[in-house]
Write a protein that binds this DNA or RNA. Structure first.
Lengths: 180, 180
DNA sequence: TGGGTCATGTAACCTGTTACATGATTAG
DNA sequence: CTAATCATGTAACAGGTTACATGACCCA
């Protein structure tokens, strides 16, 4: 499991609202973990019941009121426990719907498969470019932050990942073209 | 969505039972898609209701009876439609619980993080070896099969993937060791 | 006699997705 | 006037996980 812990990790950086968590997810963890807005609010309620976080309502006049969540002692412990517990075997799973499609693509003509593979490559190039931009923004915005090294590890994984995908797509396209 | 389509793809190779689908999943698609036994039986029921597959009970005397599932016309259409429909943007999502942990690892001491990263590397080396073995077995068992090229694309992705992970882990470990 | 293979599932729960709903303020 | 931003969610459904349950046959 990870969404609760992802939220816990973000709240650990300082008290936040569901709204801001949603934006934080979409702006940082999104490459390797996605969360729907509705899911975030649901998890926040569950986490408050579990005692991992506590909330406080902030009255605002110019904007809608908001609910600020803070980490409790128990929440902090849970976060550290999750980080320390080495469950790598559980965490290493790959789930890739695109590869499922490729696996069964023998049913489709080679030319179409080449097309699809080229589109895949383009998507990867685009995603790669996006991550590069994200890294630049983070670097400027969080210079000197002790967490920046770790944030950069994850985005560098993204770059390595898409570069690998592009190489694989190139090799796959070559093999398919020889089949024509 | 993909499990229903994964099952559809496998039944398309010929009529099978839930039991054999379970083994097929664990023996081929498992690297990039996992399915629980219970989930397979549930999906099979749902798919039969949808009319994608039909079933027939085979009476056996020496072994328990079994339920053979075959693809219907509608099921075949659905499979082809799913394969042709280029939803790459939907299919390209990465979800990696390990990276979520790395993202928040600033809370943990550097030495522990180096340890974790080394364990990650070992897991990847093991997974890489496993895929290599799988490829060898497939190559021998399905020589000349028209689907083999596509099956090999997916396993070669696996090899590229874990090689990339190992390189990334090495670089990460180096960076972390400089922080000590 | 104990463990593996064959073969089927159910039930409960948790997580993820999609669609819908509200309503004020502010900037173009 | 219209679209975006701020800020909250609910409801229903789909998909994934965990635990439990049964029972025969075969091999060592």
């Amino acid at each position: 499991m990870s969404l609760k812990h992802g939220i816990l990790g973000l709240i650990n950086y300082g008290p936040t609202t569901g709204y801001d968590l949603d934006k934080a997810f979409k702006g940082s963890l999104n490459f390797f973990w996605q969360a729907q807005t509705s899911q975030i609010y649901r998890e926040l309620n569950a986490m408050e019941k579990q005692g991992w976080i506590s909330s406080e309502i902030i009255i605002q006049t110019d904007k809608p009121n908001k609910k600020l969540f803070s980490l409790t002692e128990i929440g902090k412990e849970e976060l550290l426990c999750w980080l320390k517990y080495n469950s790598i075997e559980d965490d290493i799973l790959v789930r890739d719907p695109f590869l499922v499609k490729v696996f069964f693509s023998g049913e489709i003509d080679t030319a179409s498969n080449i097309e699809t593979m080229k589109m895949f490559k383009e998507c990867c190039q685009y995603a790669h470019k996006k991550i590069k931009e994200t890294i630049d923004n983070f670097e400027k915005a969080f210079e000197g932050n002790k967490n920046l090294v770790y944030w950069k590890f994850t985005s560098s994984f993204g770059l390595y990942y898409y570069e690998m995908c592009i190489r694989w797509a190139d090799d796959t396209i070559k093999t398919l073209e020889d089949l024509l």
